[in-house]
Design a protein around this nucleic acid. Sequence first.
DNA 1: CGGTCGTTTCAGAATACTCTGAAATCACCG
DNA 2: CGGTGATTTCAGAGTATTCTGAAACGACCG
Lengths: 189, 189
Amino acid sequence: MTAALTKAQDQFIAVWGQMAGAWGISRTMAEVHALLFIVGDPMCTDDVMERLQISRGNASMSLRALLDWGIIERSHKRGDRKEYFSAEQDVWSLFRAIVRERIAREVDPLLASLYEIRDMTPADRARRGEAAEDDRAKIEAHNKRIDEMVEFFRVLEKIGHRFVSPSGRGLQLAAMLLGRLPEGAGEAR
Amino acid sequence: MTAALTKAQDQFIAVWGQMAGAWGISRTMAEVHALLFIVGDPMCTDDVMERLQISRGNASMSLRALLDWGIIERSHKRGDRKEYFSAEQDVWSLFRAIVRERIAREVDPLLASLYEIRDMTPADRARRGEAAEDDRAKIEAHNKRIDEMVEFFRVLEKIGHRFVSPSGRGLQLAAMLLGRLPEGAGEAR
DNA sequence: CGGTCGTTTCAGAATACTCTGAAATCACCG
DNA sequence: CGGTGATTTCAGAGTATTCTGAAACGACCG
């Protein structure tokens, strides 16, 4: 392995690790993924530990979490009891998986909460009391804000689903958005 | 102010605060934004401090950060030396601002790093040595991975810019996505 | 079964991040 | 200018998150 390649890999791992914070996952988890992605070949726990200088426990937990996200997979070598892991190599598949998970983990629960919040201030209840003309207006304005927020996330969720669902769709979507993009860009794998 | 409204506001603030982690900002910053958004009216530092039970320093820093993100703005009341803050009320404008900032803070630097990494393993250098047929293949595979990643983020950046730029576009974009992929989708802009 | 190799778990240590509060700074007023 | 009140800053305290390492667990083998 050339020195330049190793350096480039390390650099990539570092850069990907930086992003972690902004994406809401731990640095190490991102680094483990970066490593598997950029190396390309399956690696076992010990390989990962050594290359990233992390503990066995940390490696195990990070790999497990990446499996839960569906962006790495297990494999085995004949006559070897160890488990090997490798990352999804297709960048669009990778991000489809990430979008799928983030919708499920963040957007859906958020929408559920927003619906509940909306139900806390029903418009008709506000109308009952006469004394509080002012309150009624406040509640209506509040409801409008919540409703618009709900609407936004519903649209976002739909876009997400469209991006995620039929494999290969992601690229078409992007191409569409960009107007005329060179068509051959990303045919089926 | 009705009790139900206050409770709903608090709930909204809590939910928005939860999201913070996943979005790479601090909980308090998200809560301050949620408060200003859901209340609608301008509030001064002391109002924020009292409602969220946070220190003056924390409130000041959070408000400053939100100003930097461009999602709240300063205002003043005649004959009052205090500064008041209010959140952008239009949900689509809000998210346009967020997308704009995240592109600038995350995607652009990432792309710059990826270009650098790509330049660390020029294909021609790999071709020089004869001894390492194997290394050459490795480097080419590596370069392909980096190139695909670059391409992905370039597309993402373009989509982002399209979403962000002309005001009002966001909604059209979304509507477009939700229609059944009409042909005229990406006409000139 | 007992042994061996590999994986998972988790309490406590290490680290990173956030918040506080008081002092410094700023801005306006008379 | 000096005074008043608002705002910013930042070192240290407080919290939350992540990591380690060793013990428990699991799985296969002879």
